[in-house]
């Protein structure tokens, strides 16, 4: 019984590129310099867009929200504190933007049934049935747990970093990620046994 224990506690490299401290300086320049903003964009687009897309499950909405997030980041670059983690700060903006959007969408779809269909990302050739099912599972758990599942499980970020991104205590992050895993696993097992989502 060594399969799980051997590599379980080793934190794998997160899928997002490491954001070094030079990014803070680049961010401050980006407030007034378009070239610096483009450079910042190139380094931030994948992690931020992926996070938003996983949160909302719809390409068109994700692109709109990503633009809103960029605009908010640009608007507040001047207030960026040296001590702040730039990435955590960007993620907190993206997360709040996505959650607010999902709240508004829920309010609308509760009155009229026009929930947007899940869409395949633009750079994937064809989304498999498994991929679609997994994204459906993600969309079925409440947004605040979904964001923690994405950050903790999919992106494999450290709890301390997630705590800064979400403004939650470390203990709360730990409990909520466990709860999010339980919610996802319940549906994932049902799917594996041939049940419906």
């Amino acid at each position: 019984m060594g399969g799980v224990t051997s590599g379980a506690a080793v934190k794998q490299a997160p899928e997002a590129p490491p954001i070094e401290s030079s990014l803070g300086a680049l961010a401050r320049r980006a407030a007034h310099d378009e070239q610096a903003f483009r450079e910042l964009y190139d380094r931030m687009k994948r992690p931020l867009y992926t996070f938003i897309y996983r949160m909302v499950g719809h390409m068109g909405e994700a692109e709109e929200l990503f633009q809103d997030t960029l605009l908010k980041i640009h608007r507040n670059l001047g207030r960026l504190d040296d001590r702040d983690s730039f990435l955590a700060w960007c993620y907190s903006i993206a997360r709040n933007t996505a959650i607010s959007h999902l709240r508004r969408r829920k309010a609308i779809t509760e009155s009229i049934d026009d929930r947007p269909e899940l869409e395949a990302p633009p750079n994937s050739h064809e989304e498999t049935e498994v991929q679609l099912d997994l994204r459906k599972i993600l969309m079925q758990i409440p947004p605040r747990y979904r964001s923690l599942f994405i950050l903790g499980v999919l992106e494999q970020r450290e709890y301390q970093e997630i705590s800064r991104m979400t403004g939650k205590s470390l203990a709360s992050v730990k409990i909520d990620i466990h709860r999010a895993r339980q919610m996802v696993r319940e549906r994932w097992e049902r799917l594996r046994k041939g049940g419906k989502l």
């Binding site: 992926t50 692109e63 990503f66 750079n123 997994l134 999919l154 895993r181 996802v184």
Partner: peptide, 15 residues
Amino acid sequence: MDDDFRRNLPPVDPS
């Protein structure tokens, strides 16, 4: 489950 999600939901880029 974790591996299944990580493998099947890779990072994506915006247009």
